[in-house]
């Protein structure tokens, strides 16, 4: 299973970013192998419409689950249609810590 975490930096040891569409990076973690890959978000400085565009980007990478802080209305509508599951992480920890908490069933499901 592929888990996408919104992240302030380019690795699994970076802090989780609370914003969804304007997250600086999306870190994709393979839950079985533990391997991770970071994708820089090209939408960070766009004026608007970043939510639905980020959903297409993440869906295109083949994610099954997303861990992020908060979602806007348009992102929510796109994610609901996408089939991906979304979980909220409100802590200050790293991508790896958020994934570990998700695996333990400790995160609240948003979508």
């Amino acid at each position: 299973m592929k888990i996408c975490v919104t992240s302030k930096g380019a690795g699994a040891d970076s802090a989780v970013e609370q914003r969804f569409g304007r997250s600086p990076f999306f870190v994709f973690v393979d839950s079985e192998s533990g391997e991770s890959k970071a994708v820089e978000n090209p939408l960070v400085n766009e004026s608007g419409g970043v939510g639905p565009r980020a959903v297409q980007l993440i869906s295109g990478e083949g994610a099954d689950v997303i861990i992020t802080g908060q979602l806007g209305g348009n992102a929510t509508a796109a994610l609901q249609a996408s089939g991906m599951k979304v979980f909220a992480y409100s802590g200050t920890g790293t991508v790896s810590e958020a994934v570990a908490q998700y695996k333990e069933g400790g995160l609240r499901q948003l979508i």
Binding site: E46, S47, G48, G49, V50, G51, P52, R53, V55, Q56, S59, G60, N74, A77, A78, A81, S82, G83
Partner: peptide, 22 residues
């Protein structure tokens, strides 16, 4: 979806969403 800078189109695995207001 990649072209639209307003985020009015989202291409998912099985369909394209149109956000009319965007």
């Amino acid at each position: 979806g990649r072209f639209c800078r307003y985020g009015a189109l989202t291409v998912l695995k099985d369909r394209v969403l149109v956000f009319e207001k965007m």
